[in-house]
Write a protein that binds this DNA or RNA. Sequence first.
DNA 1: AGAAATTAATCCGTTGATGGAACAATGCAT
DNA 2: ATGCATTGTTCCATCAACGGATTAATTTCT
Lengths: 296, 296
Amino acid sequence: MHVELLNDMALFVEVVKARSFRRAAETIGMPNSTLSRRIGLLEKAIGLRLLHRTTRKIELTEAGQIYFERCKRIVDEARLAHEQLGEILAQPSGVLRVSLPVDFATTFLAPQIAEFSRRYPGISFEFDLTPRRVDLVTEPFDVAIRMGEQPDSNLIARQIAVLPRYLYASPRYLELYGEPRQPADLSGHECLRMRPSANVWTLHDATEAIDVTVGGRFQLNSIGMMRRLAAFDLGIAMLAEEIVADDLANGRLRRVLPQWQATPVPVYAITETRLLPAKTLRFIDFLHDYMIHKPK
Amino acid sequence: MHVELLNDMALFVEVVKARSFRRAAETIGMPNSTLSRRIGLLEKAIGLRLLHRTTRKIELTEAGQIYFERCKRIVDEARLAHEQLGEILAQPSGVLRVSLPVDFATTFLAPQIAEFSRRYPGISFEFDLTPRRVDLVTEPFDVAIRMGEQPDSNLIARQIAVLPRYLYASPRYLELYGEPRQPADLSGHECLRMRPSANVWTLHDATEAIDVTVGGRFQLNSIGMMRRLAAFDLGIAMLAEEIVADDLANGRLRRVLPQWQATPVPVYAITETRLLPAKTLRFIDFLHDYMIHKPK
DNA sequence: AGAAATTAATCCGTTGATGGAACAATGCAT
DNA sequence: ATGCATTGTTCCATCAACGGATTAATTTCT
């Protein structure tokens, strides 16, 4: 079958419904010259005249009547199909597959996911907590959460938060190694560093930004582990405050260089495409809203 | 709904069926660049990704699966609609509305219409026998039969026969007025003339054509009436031989100037369009075949 | 592991479809 | 009848879609 006919079938239905080329063209939003030409081409393609036309009125031929009944059903079904698709867009459902960093999940997502799952009962969840950067193209993930600046790629990155980071250490560590008074003091300290991030920490106060080259014996790829190491007096860690909330509360950690903060780390929701089903869209929106207006 | 999507729905179905853009493009007969672009546009239009694609294989998204099921049905129904239309083209049915001259109907059509109606039992007939030239555009006629050259118009004229015409008169007329020996003799005779045709008769023999200006007291618009007038000794008539077959057989008329014949008159089937349903097409074909190979 | 082959996406010069305007024809009102 | 208003068709300059060639990415074969 010739594919090009389908559109013209829809046009034909509109013309018959409107009982006029001009009115049909108006409702469709198409010049009637095009409409007239297209109907003519349709008739030529199927080899039958569908409409008897005078300049004042049009009426269906016998073949046109039969064809119209069929076309109307087809067009209606097509409309239905798109409405159904619209519902998919509007009413989130299905399995949401998310890849996200362990500590983002436990610290930021866990407290809120109950609310989200309650709001959208049609969504099931598959969380993949991994430090690995999953391949969104190959693997069946709807969205991946990633921290830090993203390399250019053909993936779509939406920033859902910017996390301020501060420096923390245990009281005992500070007792042993002394408390830094200014950023430059850090170079002599045991600084816990993320792999593969650089060994240069940038610190900001109200007026300036200072780069400090830092060192230490620990380099790791887990925020949670870093928190634990710091709590066990093994060094100074650069962390978001939500991560260390408990440790601050019970005194296992306290802030170092309290006038200074590190460069905030952006958090992105990464997708393969912008054409997202509602389940993904709502999840990203939810994260974004929560992280922006996050409860203290 | 946006009309342009329907074609793309058909393309989408082909891609899913072929499980490959390349194979789908091949079966459709379309460059894969166009196919790829069109599917991409479809996805953008509905706002959802339908296919997960790698360079080696494609698979449906959740939304794509639902959409595919719908689209398949739509495309199948469209195919069905066109097959059904093809049957209309192939298997003649419906009411055939014909406008035709009285004497053409009684003389040429009547003996053969039984055969035609037997061959196509699905066709019903509405014959309108009238000397009037019906308006094919306004009035609901499928075809009109007209004799003589047709004026230029946007109607479609197919010649279905060329009828030779000869001169006939009754023996008694010839007894009273004398038998013409050459065309020029006609000018003194009572010549029965069709209205509004000219008063000049052109006669042909094997070698030449002669124009004769003729006159007489009778001018009319009915072949049958002309035959009757001639049979009642009222003049010389120019008629096709089928018209006067009975009168010749029982001696009411006999041929005048037997070496000469008038300019043959063409017979046309006139339609509003070339895009004809089978019923009309077959009827015209039938007339054409019968008139060309007409039994003596 | 490297090379070749296969496939979808992209690029860009060309072309066929488009749509505003002019035209033709029809019906209505005077 | 005649003029006017409305509607479908045709015309042609313009422009967006097309499609052949190229690119990038991935699998399979050597």
